[in-house]
């Protein structure tokens, strides 16, 4: 059986509906909300601020600490055990590495920038949603950045190449490849590339092109969300 049609009649190169907002957590220095389909991510940024214990300080640059967390009720109904896990630790690490290339932390020696990503609801693509939210929150915090980061998962379901896999596709019976990608949209540089499953070499090239296009679209959403925060204020 070949994979003919996606859920909700979504096109193979189409992402789930995206929604983005900025500045929703008032006490944080910067914050953002990013929704793609049923996956929701909140990101809050604190800093640059003083870093203790002191031996962690880097006199050449500020450091970035990311924390990815799925809320206990966020999964498909099974309770997600609260607190860190092997998985969340890995995702926190790769999120930090995906965001670091755009940040100019040399401007803030001996400090730390904390990024907290919370997911109240997840249905595949949560690390990508987290990265999108975090990059908007970092910009909202007024940090010096070279660019934003947009992320999306692409892959192969059976014989079709698809953008933004949802849970039903990730768990499809048959050959599935799930490739989360984070990109700097203006320079087309990749900051995160992971893969789950199997995919032929030539398909990877095709799928990367698809990711590039999808990231550009996500970037536009991020951009307008950041601008909207101030536009609303101007209208009042």
């Amino acid at each position: 059986m070949a994979y003919k049609e996606r859920l909700n009649k979504r096109g193979f190169e189409e992402t789930r509906p995206i929604e983005a907002k900025v500045g929703i957590i008032k006490r944080a220095d910067g914050s953002a909300y990013f929704r793609i389909g049923n996956t929701i991510a909140y990101a809050a940024v604190y800093g640059p601020r003083n870093l203790f214990p002191r031996f962690l300080q880097d006199p050449q640059r500020g450091i970035l600490r990311c924390n990815y967390n799925m809320m206990p009720f966020s999964g498909s109904g099974e309770r997600v055990r609260p607190g860190g896990s092997r998985r969340s630790k890995e995702i926190s690490l790769v999120t930090g590495k995906a965001l670091l290339p755009v940040l100019n932390l040399e401007e803030y020696p001996n400090t730390v920038v904390d990024v907290f990503i919370e997911l109240p609801q997840t249905e595949a693509g949560s690390r990508c949603a987290g990265i999108c939210a975090a990059s908007m929150a970092l910009a909202d915090a007024g940090l010096i950045m070279k660019d934003l980061v947009a992320a999306v998962s692409v892959g192969r379901v059976d014989d079709k190449l698809v953008v933004d896999l949802d849970y039903s596709e990730e768990s499809y019976e048959g050959i599935v490849a799930d490739i989360p990608i984070a990109m700097i949209p203006n320079s087309n540089k990749i900051t995160l590339l992971q893969m789950d499953g199997m995919i032929p070499k030539e398909d990877v090239k095709k799928v990367l092109e698809m990711a590039k296009k999808a990231c550009k679209k996500i970037y536009e959403v991020q951009k307008s969300a950041l601008k909207d925060k101030y536009k609303v204020e101007q209208d009042v």
Binding site: G47, N104, G142, L226
Partner: peptide
């Protein structure tokens, strides 16, 4: 290229950004 969130200010040939957020 802009390196932060800000308002554009043109001063002769220079392009400056007035920061809207930040510590």
């Amino acid at each position: 290229i802009a390196s932060r969130l800000g308002l554009v200010q043109l001063e002769g040939r220079a392009i400056k950004l007035i920061p809207l957020a930040g510590r």
